[in-house]
Design a protein around this nucleic acid. Structure first.
Length: 106
DNA sequence: TGAATAATGGCCT
DNA sequence: AGGCCATTATTCA
């Protein structure tokens, strides 16, 4: 079982909203991707930016499947080349093959 | 198809 | 209260 989930549930240095985002993210089944807007709607939010911000500030780093979140275009959306960014970028590539995604490149 | 801009909603300091 | 954001949609060429 993912202690990550437990960590999020015990996280107190984050807002309730943030917790929802992480939980929903962990809730995403493997081989499935969700857009910021989709995830936002799931938690009852209308702003994908808020979700994105939550992931950016993600205190749970790559432990959380943030690589399953993509833009509405089916692209990788945002992501920076920071330390975690590189790792996630790589993870994303593997995840794509894992789920058999044809890598939509507009 | 690609780029730029506008609008939007919520979070952080 | 102000600024920020890993967005989204729309518009123009």
């Amino acid at each position: 079982m993912s202690d990550i989930r437990h960590r999020v549930l015990t996280a107190t240095h984050i807002t309730e909203f943030q917790r929802r985002v992480y939980l929903e993210l962990l809730r995403v089944p493997r081989g499935k991707t969700v857009t910021y807007g989709e995830l936002a709607r799931r938690i009852g939010c209308r702003s994908a930016q808020a979700v994105g911000q939550a992931l950016k500030r993600n205190p749970f780093a790559p432990e959380v499947p943030c690589h399953r979140v993509i833009a509405s275009d089916g692209t990788l959306g945002g992501f920076h080349s920071q330390r975690t960014g590189e790792m996630i970028e790589k993870k994303r590539a593997l995840l794509k093959e894992e789920m058999g995604l044809p890598l939509q490149k507009k």
